[in-house]
Write a protein that binds this DNA or RNA. Structure first.
Lengths: 102, 102
DNA sequence: GGGTAAGTACGAAGAATGCCGTACTACGAG
DNA sequence: CTCGTAGTACGGCATTCTTCGTACTTACCC
């Protein structure tokens, strides 16, 4: 089984989180994960970019510590690391998600 | 008198705010403005860059709607637009400022 | 085993960003 | 009027980011 590396909670960096969330495509992924159920495969996101670009954005989010990814078959299940983010940077994710909808 | 253009509250864009705050030098400016008194001239910020780079960062913050700037003599007085930001994106600035100190 | 679906690796092109130096403008002090 | 201070405009350079295409891997299904 392939493995994907995720930063520990205490290693999540504000710089990375903010620049990851500054991109509209990546915010769209985060918003969809927050709004719907967890465990959505990458393919479930209807993004206006090719597969390889999509891979890139998911990786940026994972390496920033915003989402977690794990394999199931050939697919990847994505989860928002909302509780960990709230622990590290309280209120940040909520504020961005709230701001998104206006 | 020279004038500087600032976006209206309703025109402040999440994209611009987040990418402006993603830069550590710009967050340092914002943190100093939030912590200390308002109306600090650009020169009052001890930034590890040259004057022209400094000008660039202040402009990014102003055009994003995060700070306001007005001339007094040859100097520029900088203020955090905290109330307007709180109106547009509630909790966002507080979360970033809080996150900064850990 | 063969085919298919989901995602990755890699390289490349183009745009954006961060930084600098130099030359400049605007204002105030003397 | 002249000088100094605070900041700007502009151009250039290096780096990073976004996007893509193509070729590849991995796992499931028949």
């Amino acid at each position: 089984m392939r493995t994907l590396s995720h930063p520990d909670v205490q290693d999540i960096a504000l710089d990375q989180v903010l620049s990851a969330l500054a991109d509209p495509i990546r915010r769209r992924i985060v918003t969809q994960l927050a709004g719907g159920h967890d465990d959505q495969a990458c393919i479930a996101f209807d993004l206006p970019v090719t597969k390889s670009t999509s891979t890139h954005h998911f990786r940026v989010l994972r390496e920033a510590g915003i989402i977690s990814q794990r394999y199931r078959g050939t697919a990847i299940l994505n989860c928002l690391r909302d509780e960990e983010l709230a622990e590290r940077f309280p209120g940040l994710l909520e504020a961005v998600l709230g701001a998104e909808t206006r």
